[in-house]
Design a protein around this nucleic acid. Sequence first.
DNA 1: CGTCTAGTTGTCATTTAGTGACACCTGTCG
DNA 2: CGACAGGTGTCACTAAATGACAACTAGACG
Lengths: 233, 233
Amino acid sequence: MRVGYPAGMEATTAVRGCPPPAGRRERKKQRTREALIDTAFRLFGEKGFDATTVEEITDAVDVSSRTFFRYFASKEDVVLTYQEEQFATFLEELAARPSGEPVMTALRRAAVTVMRACEEGDHGFDPERFGCIQQMMERSPAVFGRSLEHGQKKQAEVTRIIAERMGVDPASDLRPHVAAGASNSAFRSAFEVLACGVTKAERMSDVLDKVFAVLEDGLNYPACETVPGPVRG
Amino acid sequence: MRVGYPAGMEATTAVRGCPPPAGRRERKKQRTREALIDTAFRLFGEKGFDATTVEEITDAVDVSSRTFFRYFASKEDVVLTYQEEQFATFLEELAARPSGEPVMTALRRAAVTVMRACEEGDHGFDPERFGCIQQMMERSPAVFGRSLEHGQKKQAEVTRIIAERMGVDPASDLRPHVAAGASNSAFRSAFEVLACGVTKAERMSDVLDKVFAVLEDGLNYPACETVPGPVRG
DNA sequence: CGTCTAGTTGTCATTTAGTGACACCTGTCG
DNA sequence: CGACAGGTGTCACTAAATGACAACTAGACG
């Protein structure tokens, strides 16, 4: 199974508003793409991800199924367009953090900013769609799996940025890799904690903030056992 | 798409040697299951995961394709049987760690023990198969994605154990969740670091050990800037 | 304007994963 | 032995995904 976009069909940033790129052809392509995404999300919301077939989506947009797969490598890819946007914004926010800021703090602030944008509808993010995705992640393993895969792939870029911030070489220093992994993990932990209902009626962004706080505090928890024990190592 | 095992086909721990369970029927089922797994891994090794069809596997074992899907919910599930065993062993090792040991240390030691077993062939793990899986994870996104999904699902059990060790309630305390996530993340970081060739010709277990060491040291990295002050290169 | 080219789409065929239904066979147990 | 239940094969079917090729059309250019 291919992943990403077929040749010549690279993602032309969907959500954020690039002004008319040029050419009627290009514009039509863009419109088709957006129509597919909008319709897909509408149907996903109505009937669920699994119960919605590609054909239903393409019929509604009035294009052939073949066309769908020229825009998206898989049905799940439609959902990932949103995550793609989230990630791009995350990178922007991260780059915008003051260069003197400690690594985890920068990651935390960037992450929380993005999540807030999704909740509030800033930066062109649709909060309703955000909720729809949350649901699909819980209900449909395929979407969940792809999302994890996507996140893991993108992690490399975060690693690079962190390494730059730290002024170390990611080819010889493990720390940027681990930090990026932890940051990635934070998103998933926040999601999991929300899904499992550990924290009730809390915003994702708040949970995420707390998760990062836990990471910043360090994970060296002693065993409980011996009362206010001095036992360490 | 279903995940897990069809009803009545629950995993009857494949690798570890449960002595003859009872009944010819049960034994035959077990043999079929193992034949499917062995044949699948052989073909995966020869032709790659994607290029191997379920039919090829079942033809070689001389059962119908339908039977395959009575044992495994998906083609990827065959590969995950190994990971399932790894995880079970990980939990055992974790439970066996002295109760006074700090959480991350216990996680680290359990993780490294399992990885060593896979490399050395202890506990009935086949090192060759382990290598085969590593390759598939790199080459075949489907396997990689399922593996991530599987790991994420299993994380809940680790969370529970960590919470017990810490003597806190996972329903109100985020720390066990984050620690479990970080531990999960450690495995993936080790894999990624090896795959990307950051560390050359090093054993997975050694890399994993180092990754955990980094986690234990904490992630509070300051920005590089040798000289304090927001000066940008 | 007419034409040529290249990019986009539709149609068709095909492969493969995965599932449901039902008949059949064979251990297991009374 | 005979009934029952669990496992298997066969058949039919849906749906995702991809390759090949023909048909259309925007855009470039003389």
